[in-house]
C-alpha cells in the first residue's frame, strides 16, 4: 500500500483516537462511560495494527514516529496502574512495612550499633574534655546549660507551638528521608547522620549531667525520644538496605539489586513520616508542659514499644493480595 493511501484510509480513526485520548487525559477514566472506553480500546487495537504495518513498510518516516507517539499515549491510559486507594494504604501499613523491616533485621542492627557508637563517643568526649560539646551543640544551647537551665524552656516559650511543631517534624522527616537516600552513597551519608544524631544525644546527656540537669533532660525527652530515635533508626536501616544492595548485590547486577531492594527499603523509610509527625507533636505540646513525669514516661514508653512491636510482630498473617 502506498503511504498516501495508507494515511488517507486510516487518518480518521487516528485522529478520533487522539481526540478521545485528550478527553480521558483531562477527565480520567471515571469521567467517561463504558461505551467510550470500549471504543477507545478498539481504536487502540486498530492503531497498534497500523503501527505494526507501518513498522514493516514505512521505516524511517515521520508517520511512524507519530504512530509510536499515539500508541504510547493510548497505552499509558489503558495500562494505568491501580490508583492509590484506602485498600492499598491498608495493605501498605498492615503488611508491607512490618515485612520489609523483618526482612532486613541486620540492617536495623547496624543502624542501632552506629547510633550507639555515636552516643558512646559523645559521652566519653565530654567526659574527657567538656569543650568538645561546642563541636556539635549550638552556643545558645551551651550558654543555657552553663547557666543551669534546659534550652527547651526558652525555645518553647518564645516560638508559638504551631510553628515549633511544624518545624520539628519537618526537619526530623527531612533527616529520616535523607538517611534513606544516603544509602545511595554506599551508606556513608546514612552512617554519618546516624552517628551525628547519636553523638549529639551523648554529648547533651553528659553535659547536662555535669550541670545537674540530667533529670530535667530525661523528663523532657521521655515523651517523644524513644519514638523519634526509633524512626530515625528504621530510616537509617532503610538506607543501609540500599547500600548493601550496591555493595553486595549477590547474584544480581548492582542496578538490579538496587531496584529490587529499593522497593522494600522505601517502605521502611516511609513509616517514619507518620511516626515523626506524632513525635513532633508530643515534643511541642506535651514534653515542655507540666504534665507529671510518670505520664510523659508512660506515654513515651508505650509509643516506642508499640512502634517496635508493630514492626517486628504484626502483618504475619494479613491477607495476601497483590495487584
Amino acid at each position: 500500500m502506498n503511504l498516501g493511501t495508507f494515511v488517507r484510509k486510516n487518518r480518521p480513526h487516528w485522529q478520533k483516537l487522539e481526540s478521545m485520548l485528550g478527553v480521558i487525559e483531562t477527565r480520567g477514566p471515571r469521567g467517561t462511560d463504558r461505551l467510550f472506553l470500549r471504543e477507545l480500546t478498539a481504536l487502540y487495537r486498530m492503531t497498534t495494527g497500523d503501527l505494526a504495518f507501518a513498522q514493516t513498510h514505512y521505516r524511517g518516516t515521520t508517520l511512524l514516529l507519530f504512530l509510536h507517539q499515539l500508541v504510547a499515549r493510548a497505552h499509558n491510559q489503558i495500562y494505568r496502574p491501580h490508583r492509590f486507594s484506602a485498600k492499598v494504604f491498608d495493605i501498605f501499613i498492615r503488611r508491607d512495612v512490618p515485612r520489609a523491616v523483618r526482612e532486613h533485621l541486620p540492617a536495623v542492627t547496624w543502624s542501632i550499633i552506629i547510633f550507639l557508637m555515636g552516643v558512646g563517643l559523645g559521652l566519653s568526649a565530654v567526659q574527657f574534655d567538656e569543650r568538645a560539646a561546642s563541636i556539635i551543640l549550638p552556643s545558645s544551647v551551651l550558654n543555657s546549660i552553663y547557666s543551669g537551665q534546659l534550652w527547651t524552656g526558652s525555645i518553647f516559650s518564645v516560638v508559638p507551638s504551631s510553628i515549633a511543631s511544624t518545624y520539628l517534624f519537618t526537619s526530623n522527616i527531612s533527616v529520616a528521608l535523607l538517611a534513606f537516600a544516603g544509602g545511595l552513597s554506599c551508606g556513608l551519608i546514612t552512617a554519618a547522620i546516624l552517628f551525628q544524631n547519636g553523638f549529639m544525644l551523648g554529648v547533651a546527656i553528659k553535659l547536662c549531667a555535669n550541670y545537674g540537669l540530667l533529670g530535667a533532660l530525661l523528663e523532657f525527652i521521655a515523651g517523644h525520644g524513644l519514638l523519634e530515635i526509633s524512626s530515625i533508626l528504621v530510616a537509617g536501616a532503610a538506607g543501609f538496605v540500599l547500600a548493601n544492595a550496591l555493595l553486595n548485590p549477590g547474584s544480581l547486577s548492582r542496578i538490579d539489586a538496587l531496584a529490587q531492594e529499593g522497593r522494600s527499603a522505601v517502605r521502611m523509610a516511609l513509616i517514619c513520616v507518620p511516626a515523626l509527625v506524632v513525635a513532633g507533636c508530643i515534643e511541642t505540646f506535651i514534653s515542655p508542659s507540666h504534665f507529671p513525669v510518670w505520664f510523659k514516661a508512660a506515654l513515651g514508653l508505650t509509643l516506642g514499644t508499640s512502634f517496635w512491636l508493630y514492626l517486628l510482630f504484626t502483618g504475619k498473617s494479613a491477607p495476601i493480595k497483590t495487584e
Binding site: A72, H75, N76, Y79, R80, P81, H82, F84, V88, L177, L178, F180, A181, G182, L184, S185, I189, G262, R263, V266, A269, L270
Partner: peptide
C-alpha cells in the same frame, strides 16, 4: 514524561523511589 522502563505508566512507589533519591543526585 516519566514512564517505567517497560513502557507502562509509573505507580506511586516508583515515583517515590525516584524522587526520594533527589538529595543524592
Amino acid at each position: 514524561r516519566v514512564i517505567k522502563a517497560d513502557g507502562s505508566p509509573v505507580s506511586g512507589i516508583d515515583v517515590l523511589l525516584r524522587n526520594l533519591a533527589r538529595p543524592i543526585d
